[in-house]
Amino acid sequence: MKVFKKGRLEKILDKLSESAEVYVPMMRGAQSGFFDYKTYNPDFDELVLEALNVLRPPKEVVFPQTEKMYSFKQEGQDVIIDKVYEDENPRIIFGIRACDLKAIEYLDEVFLTCGYEDAFYKKRRENTVFIANACYTPGKNCFCESMGVNPVEPELADIVLREYSDEGYVWEVKTEKGENITRLISDLLEDKEVQLPELKKFVIKVDYDGVAEKLKGLFEHPMWDRLSEPCQTCGICTYICPTCHCFDIQVKAWGDEGYRFRCWDSCMYREYTQMAGGHNPRETAKERFRNRFLHKLEFFYERYGKPLCTGCGRCVFVCPSGVSIVKIIEEIKGA
């Protein structure tokens, strides 16, 4: 087995950062997310590879919250598009967990299948390498296993890290992309046979089986009135969700030039479906709440054959009003 000692982590990151943007889980002040290692400042930042996960999912590496699409100039009646910002910079997501990597698989479905390929996403995605961090100790709100994720065998990973003890990590190469990256740091790895930990039991189990089919008949069920009562329609759950991918397209212009960008949007916002003529098909919290959960548990499944939830547990603990998707799945089962 190839392994590296924890003391060498920063050396590895330094080396990898020479040829790519390396996104690593960090605490930066109150922010918890993946940040470019080049911006790491040990006086303010803390590397948190050992933590269960970080609050902001790494989806923003392939799908940034705000992304410039193209810039333009207008002169009189003439308009030209002078630059399209397709970003091909090499990137590495270092330490992504299986749930968040599964989410990337779902984003791939959205952005790369069903008729159109999203060129902005595609360019970023193709140039991103995933170094996953296998999970052996599920957290209090984790239910990835119930949603079809294997926490110790992250799919899509180019390299899998396995924390075998406080001493260090196993470095397991999975793909050719992973081979190439490994070559860059091979002198920092060593050969050692180690005992891998066992996956601990999940506290939370969810039974998603049959939920999508059952929901077909529950659109007008009164449970949506009750379940949505506490929801205050903020966007926290959608923004910290590794699978939520709705976006808006907007323009910023000053005088005769500017750029068009896209930015994350949230189905919880009223404006999301507000039409210019005044009609809004999802006017109240109930409709928006229902659409969000049906999208995750039914509509996405109907379209792509899988639920749009990887059981990462974030939305369960961040909701100011205590809404929990785990409870909602239970309610649906019991309805």
């Binding site: 605490m27 109150a30 918890s32 933590a51 269960l52 957290g139 603990f317 961040v318």
Partner: peptide, 17 residues
């Protein structure tokens, strides 16, 4: 604050004041 306790108990890297 229940929210703070939820964050703290999540196992995620989060710091609440």
């Amino acid at each position: 604050d229940p929210l703070k306790r939820m964050y703290e108990d999540s196992g995620f890297a989060v710091k609440k004041p």
